[in-house]
Amino acid sequence: MRNHVKNIFLIFYGLFFVSCVYFNTFYNAQNSFNKAIEIIDNDSSKNYKEEQNISNIAKKLLYESISSSNIVINKYPDSKYIDDAIYYIARSYLSLNELYKSEKYFVQLINDYSDSKYYNESRLWLEYIHLKLDLLDLAIKNINSIENDFNNSKKNIDKELWFLLYDLKGDLFIKLQKHEEAFAQFETSLNYLTSKTKKIMMYSKLATISESENKLK
């Protein structure tokens, strides 16, 4: 009887231990990613650059997030946090400017997790990548499709997604050298920002673009 109770205790202890390791791994992925993005946003708000050089601390945190996320995916494939892990990897690689790796994971999330809370956001980030890769025709087509979807379900689209959409459209018009249209989109995007840091970053972005445009005149 005592051995039976002991075996049950060991089973429950083992399950509890595995559960703790699993959640801690996911928490590390999430925490490292959030800290890195906070550092990057703060640095961008002080001195915006189109190709922002991120600090070594932020890089280290992003790679830590990628590593922990991969553990979640590989060791706990039935986890409810798989789409979160894929998202953290995709965003981390994008911040590191490793575009093809980032694209791979955003495409995976979009194709395999259409019910994910990250689905629409991932569609937008994927088009940022297409712009960086100068795939303008593809980006224009997909951005129009995303905007139509958003307009057809406005109540379900939060402010952060509207901000990303208008910021993305602004970047597209910059690529097309339509600066007036770009500024109109960027100004609209400001209406959807609540974070003071992100607002400062956007004003810094507008000032940098305006300065570059004046140099071309």
Rank of each mutant, 00 (worst) to 15 (best):
167 D>F: 07
155 K>E: 07
180 E>K: 13
113 Y>K: 01
94 L>T: 14
159 K>V: 00
155 K>R: 08
156 N>P: 06
120 N>H: 13
152 N>C: 07
185 Q>L: 05
190 L>T: 15
148 N>Q: 10
61 L>Y: 07
174 I>E: 01
172 L>K: 02
160 E>F: 13
101 K>R: 14
166 Y>C: 03
156 N>C: 02
70 N>E: 11
88 Y>S: 03
102 S>W: 01
127 E>M: 08
156 N>G: 05
119 Y>T: 13
111 N>C: 08
87 Y>N: 04
187 E>D: 08
136 L>K: 05
53 N>P: 05
55 S>P: 00
75 K>F: 06
156 N>D: 00
99 L>H: 03
123 R>Q: 13
173 F>E: 12
158 D>L: 15
132 K>A: 11
141 K>F: 04
179 H>L: 10
89 I>D: 02
84 D>M: 03
162 W>A: 14
166 Y>Q: 11
156 N>Q: 04
179 H>E: 09
49 K>H: 06
139 A>W: 01
98 E>S: 02
122 S>F: 00
103 E>D: 07
139 A>T: 00
78 D>G: 15
125 W>T: 04
135 L>Q: 10
71 I>Q: 09
55 S>M: 10
121 E>H: 10
177 Q>A: 12
189 S>F: 11
134 D>V: 01
184 A>I: 13
89 I>C: 10
147 E>S: 04
67 S>A: 12
191 N>V: 06
154 K>T: 11
66 I>Y: 03
151 N>T: 11
115 D>V: 15
